[in-house]
Design a protein around this nucleic acid. Structure first.
Lengths: 115, 115
DNA sequence: TGAATATATAATAAAATACTTATATAATTA
DNA sequence: TAATTATATAAGTATTTTATTATATATTCA
């Protein structure tokens, strides 16, 4: 059994509700290993910029992700400081990697690689 | 790391969406260790019978739970045959036990204990 | 077989969620 | 400092989800 502390039922439901969306879940998996900016996510998920932005806001509101501004862009990544980080990892662990999607972007020359 | 196979992103999102509801999540945790009939769940969650029935239907539709009829009652439990059972267990593992709720019922003499 | 009991389903209304379009903000660069 | 770029927010609409009320079904028991 994993090292993990127990988590309040209500909080767990709140987190799982957010993860229970195909786009957000896939984004979370992608952000597990990568820092991505909004425009990359827009490209990857073929969604509108506000749609992606609103998904990110929800994830940010409960502090599952954090942001880091760099030059023009805001880069998102998983927030490892969150008390529920381990719980989230447990869920993500079973999911297939989405890293290929970023590699695709890179091939197309659309990866934002500042610094 | 747990023994677990990878699960399709879309299927995972579908399951997590169902688990992302306080009542259903708690029910799933309860059913992890117990077989319960609908009227017990109605009592425990202080919800209407159709509300509980509809939650169960959703869980049954994607085969997360199964039913077993016995005398007047239909008893629900986790469906261990499901391909995603291990994934579900991984999620439930982090949650606090809900077994106390059943013990409470028992104290009140409301536990259905056929056979 | 008929009444009682437990559960399911249908129809509807209410609430929550997600997407779109338009606009605002905030940092950057010229 | 003005224009540009990336992202966020707001408002409105469409869609989905949840709960309620009413009714149906199916088993049990008398």
């Amino acid at each position: 059994m994993d090292v993990q502390t127990q988590i309040e039922m209500e909080k767990a439901a709140q987190i799982l509700k957010l993860l229970g969306d195909k786009t957000r879940l896939s984004m979370m998996k992608l952000l597990q290993n990568n820092e991505c900016c909004v425009c990359e996510l827009v490209e990857i998920y073929k969604a509108s910029q506000p749609a992606i932005s609103q998904h990110l806001r929800k994830l940010r509101d409960i502090e599952l992700v954090k942001e880091r501004r760099k030059r023009h862009w805001i880069f998102y990544s998983l927030n490892k400081e969150n008390s529920y980080y381990q719980f989230v990892l447990n869920v993500l662990e079973s999911l297939p990697s989405e890293d290929e999607r970023l590699k695709e972007l890179e091939k197309q020359g659309l990866r934002i690689n500042c610094c």
